[in-house]
Amino acid sequence: MYIYHFPRKINNNFNDINKVINVYNKIKKIKDNQITLNFSDTNWMSGELVALLGAICYNIKHKYNKENLYIACSKNIETTFQSNNFSKQITNMQIGNTKTTAIEYKCFTEELNNNNLNCFDDYIKKELNEKLEFKQEEIDYICLFLSEIFVNARTHGRTHNIFCCGQKYPKMNKIKILLVDLGIGIPYNVRNRVDKTMNDIQCIKWSLKKGNSTKIENAGGLGLYDIFEFVKQHDGNISIISSNGQFNYNENIEIISKENFDGTIISIEFDYTSIRNIENMFKNIRKEKNFIEF
């Protein structure tokens, strides 16, 4: 049996995420069919990172055919996994407390396979409304921007294997959401469409610029740019890992990591209190432009 012991703390930063990706890359190569991910010594994990854990577990089971995957965890981590419903979905354990600041872990594979293209909107709407008690117009606004990432994942990533999880951090007034897809990755798409000599980080930065799209149609290139503008406007941050490229806007990190992730991880955070001011934001935009001209 292969057992990997996770560290005491796993935060949503490149250093800790790379440790998790490193474990995943090792598991892909080993022949042992029995794997245990051991979180017994871990007393803190950023809740939204469960999306990455879910994506990795999915591929270990379905792509690398390691059926016997076990997860052992400390009380704290068990609570985290229960609060975002990860334990129930992975092990069918019953969850206890439903009063939570977690945005539930969700794997969209089955619903997308059944052609339910509204599954992400329905999920975000439910989580923000029922659990986090956002107002309807705030939900509409957040859902609009997050939908751009989800559509990008399934159309550009060309995959149904998409995973999401999030966490509200009331003391910081922040919501953090992690969306992971096991698709073909941003660098592959950009190199094929634009320039074969671009490295992974150049490809990620290219995809964030307005009007840049790897689609063959003439319209496009606003999805990632829009979400980038959204986090800037709401005192947030965006970080992207795709293949070996790792980009973090606020911390100004642009690195080619030795750890390769076969897919894309997008982490966004934003100040949810600033969204309470939607009406004022619209007033400013209205002043700028109020007519449509082709």
Partner: peptide, 16 residues
Amino acid sequence: KTVNTAFANKIIEALY
């Protein structure tokens, strides 16, 4: 209530 750019692109491009 909302349309995103992925949706609107298809219509605007067809019109143009």
